[in-house]
């Protein structure tokens, strides 16, 4: 079957009606609906994840350089402005985590014994994994 579809307005001489009205989209369209605003904030979380990478590398570099550099890094990261930035970043990252786990069942069609697994258990598995990894990382860092 190698049919290709037609998509044309039939009839002779084409449309003669008046032009339809197209509503313009404002630049800040995402301020008009709560759901759109949440979406844009979610997308902005990417910026803070990038910031975290920068922060992590600065710290790693400082640790590698020696204990003096590490102390300097600690002084810098203890400034209220840096802490505030990290608090905001953490809030965005948490928004990312929650929305990410919430959307995970959308992309995955997990099948167990022929049956599609419902979204609930998939989300729960993500949270469980998150808890385990968080505990492991915390243990590794704090055990010293």
């Amino acid at each position: 079957m190698s049919r290709t579809p037609a998509s044309r307005r039939p009839g002779p001489a084409g449309g003669s009606g008046p032009t339809p009205y197209r509503k313009p989209v404002p630049i800040f369209w995402w301020l008009r609906r709560r759901a759109y605003l949440v979406f844009v904030l979610r997308e902005l979380s990417g910026v803070f994840i990038a910031w975290f990478v920068v922060f992590l590398l600065l710290m790693a570099g400082a640790i590698a350089e020696g204990s003096d550099a590490y102390e300097q890094f600690r002084d810098w990261s203890g400034q209220w402005s840096v802490v505030l930035l990290n608090v905001i970043a953490l809030l965005f990252v948490l928004l990312h985590t929650l929305t990410w786990f919430g959307l995970a069942p959308r992309a995955m069609a997990v099948r167990l014994r022929g049956r599609r697994v419902r979204p609930g258990p998939i989300v729960a598995t993500h949270y469980l994994l998150w808890a385990l990894l968080t505990a492991a990382v915390a243990w590794l860092i704090l055990k010293g």
């Binding site: 994840i49 975290f52 922060f55 992590l56 710290m59 600690r74 990261s77 203890g78 840096v82 802490v83 990290n86 608090v87 970043a89 953490l90 990252v93 948490l94 990312h96 985590t97 990410w100 786990f101 993500h126 994994l129 998150w130 990894l133 968080t134 990382v137 915390a138 860092i141 704090l142």
Partner: peptide, 18 residues
């Protein structure tokens, strides 16, 4: 990021500095 960043950022960015 969802799995690992929150704990790292919380510890090094907030809990330890404060």
């Amino acid at each position: 990021a969802a799995l690992l960043v929150p704990v790292l950022l919380f510890l090094f960015g907030i809990a330890f500095p404060l």
